[in-house]
Design a protein around this nucleic acid. Sequence first.
DNA 1: CTGAATTTTCAGGATTTTCTGAAGTAACGG
DNA 2: CCGTTACTTCAGAAAATCCTGAAAATTCAG
Lengths: 192, 192
Amino acid sequence: MNLPPLIQAFVLHFGEMGSRWGINRTVGQVYAVIFLANRPVCADDLVDAVGVARSNVAMALKELQSWELIRLKHVPGERRDYYGTLDDIWAIVRKLVEQRKRREIDPTLTVLRELLMQSPASEEERFAQERMQEMHGVIELVTGWYDDIERLETERLVQLLSLGSKIVKALDWKDKLFVAKGGGKPKGPERP
Amino acid sequence: MNLPPLIQAFVLHFGEMGSRWGINRTVGQVYAVIFLANRPVCADDLVDAVGVARSNVAMALKELQSWELIRLKHVPGERRDYYGTLDDIWAIVRKLVEQRKRREIDPTLTVLRELLMQSPASEEERFAQERMQEMHGVIELVTGWYDDIERLETERLVQLLSLGSKIVKALDWKDKLFVAKGGGKPKGPERP
DNA sequence: CTGAATTTTCAGGATTTTCTGAAGTAACGG
DNA sequence: CCGTTACTTCAGAAAATCCTGAAAATTCAG
């Protein structure tokens, strides 16, 4: 491993965290190197930087491409494949959430839907299904919220996140105004 | 493994997903059984339900307790330890997010802060630090937002999630009204 | 075509993680 | 105390995952 100290420290950390994040050490380290580089990176660079076998680097690159977290970037006059991360940090975050949802949540949602179709054959199963229903409801709510939010342009998204829970007060106030002005139902906004 | 079919299907699924979620098969299955049970569950029940060695069940229970996802529930007149999940599904979700943040994000935040204190020794390091700064900013923003949101009572939280991105329109509208009424700055709510 | 450069695949060895059974410890009733 | 029940610990077996080097496949210039 052959990197400036500051970069090496970050790369080693990403390697260690890899297992917690559901990727392996090499994949973590390879991604870290690409993320921190100020230019596209090729397999040889990575062998050099991370210090593992070339075939291992190839596997890591394949894995990262399957996550759509890195992209092939052709360098003019170069035959080798060069890779870079997505353009901006928010694109990376969105992709990460999308992929983890796809891998960690969607399969469960599918199973839940299947099992909720069946009729319980005992009180035990009836109760279990009730719990599954609760879980299904929460997942639908949270992922539905994200699907919606995720479409916002980044600037809006950042605004929203910066507000935090202050947004609730803002909404209260809006509701009050709305009611005061003599509008319809007191709860929930409706389309005009 | 000895469970009603509906429950067994769910338990097996949780076992399979375990590795993606950063827990092992047994831990996943044990949690699933406890989650679906309509009464507290003891180690023997779990050995019976999941079909693994008792020591393995003990390990799984220890792991789940370290996540604070299950709680000891004493059953009157019983010597054995019985376990149950947190009371309601939202408490479970909150705990899950809290723990995953603690395990998967906080360590990285610490490392980032350390590395951002150092002065770069080259252009390469300077650029890398810029990227780390971006990552740090995003993590702070998102986790800060969650820390804030997480304090809301569940009813409020559900309201907020149900709104999705409609909230942005609501805010726009509020801003417009606010400005129309001749109030202060056009952006961002301030305390009255 | 041919051959060099590069990437991909994969069998098997190395490492890590998970699981088991046996032994050990603790708590309790009588 | 003693024996029973229940829980925990832990060494090593079993399984899963990761990594390597060699070989195969692909790409491209000449």
